[in-house]
């Protein structure tokens, strides 16, 4: 019994320690004067790796999710003769929930795991140590540009996701199932508000970007530098950031949309 308690206490303490290390890492990376001349090319490269490389999976998933939403929504709504409300149904569920959340989950799988594996391998091959010995702070050189790239990319990806998904819903709802195009757009417009829906969705997306990128970078930076350690860290990135995103989504939704 005491043994169990001891174990529990030990585990709790090491959790706190790892949260502390993660915070230390993030602050170390972000609390410095960015050097625009050196930093911008690094950021652009990471925006390419993290953002542009995720574009395809985001757009394809967005298209299909929009199409499925339209199909499912239509079959329910048509029963009440309310198929004109397909537009707002699709748009609101995408902008408020699916856009930010699904993007964050896909991002964790696509870019987050890659970030963890990359940094973990850099650690395993002593590249981080070697940077440090060359008097270059790896937090600034390696972690900071990746963090900003993730933080900037994810909201953009979420916007693209929602836009493509709405077009996909239009494709199925209007062109295939025969919802009137005019009412699809106009009822959507009357129901969706820029501030309430799009902006809140964007805020969610920024929060998720912070969470996912942070977890991914920390897991890579803190991993045990062996092939086993890296694979464990990569898995943990996907699992932890997905769970964190879903948990925070509930909290944010409760704060934003329950009035």
């Amino acid at each position: 019994m005491i043994d169990l308690l001891q174990k529990l206490g030990h585990k709790t303490l090491s959790r706190f320690a790892s949260i502390g290390r993660a915070t230390q890492m993030l602050l170390g990376a972000l609390l410095n004067v960015p050097n625009l001349r050196k930093g911008t090319p690094l950021l652009i490269k990471q925006l390419y790796m993290v953002g542009h490389q995720s574009l395809l999976i985001i757009m394809v998933s967005g298209l299909f999710i929009g199409m499925v939403l339209a199909l499912q929504g239509y079959t329910v709504l048509v029963g009440y003769g309310a198929e004109d409300s397909l537009g707002p149904l699709v748009a609101l569920s995408l902008l408020r929930e699916l856009g930010p959340v699904v993007t964050a989950l896909l991002f964790a799988g696509r870019a987050g795991s890659a970030l963890t594996a990359e940094i973990g391998l850099m650690k395993a091959t002593e590249q981080l140590s070697s940077l440090e010995m060359m008097a270059v702070d790896p937090l600034k050189r390696v972690v900071a540009p990746r963090f900003w790239a993730g933080f900037i990319s994810m909201p953009l990806l979420a916007l693209i996701f929602s836009a493509v998904a709405i077009l996909g819903a239009h494709l199925v709802g209007v062109d295939w199932l025969g919802v009137d195009s005019g009412s699809f757009w106009s009822i959507m417009q009357s129901q969706v508000s820029l501030q309430q829906d799009i902006m809140n969705g964007l805020i969610k997306s920024f929060v998720f970007a912070l969470i996912v990128t942070w977890i991914a970078l920390y897991k890579g930076y803190d991993c045990i530098p062996t092939s086993e350690g890296i694979s464990k860290a990569t898995t943990e990135t996907v699992v932890h950031s997905s769970l964190a995103v879903l948990g925070f989504d509930f909290v944010l939704t409760a704060v934003m949309f329950s009035s």
Binding site: L55, A91, L95, P155, L156, L157, L159, I160, S162, A163, V164, I166, W185, M188, Q189, S190, V192, S193, L194, D197, I198
Partner: peptide, 16 residues
Amino acid sequence: LGVAAFVMLAMKVANA
């Protein structure tokens, strides 16, 4: 593309 998506959402989906 991201900015275009935002503009589309703002103009066409929400009545800005």
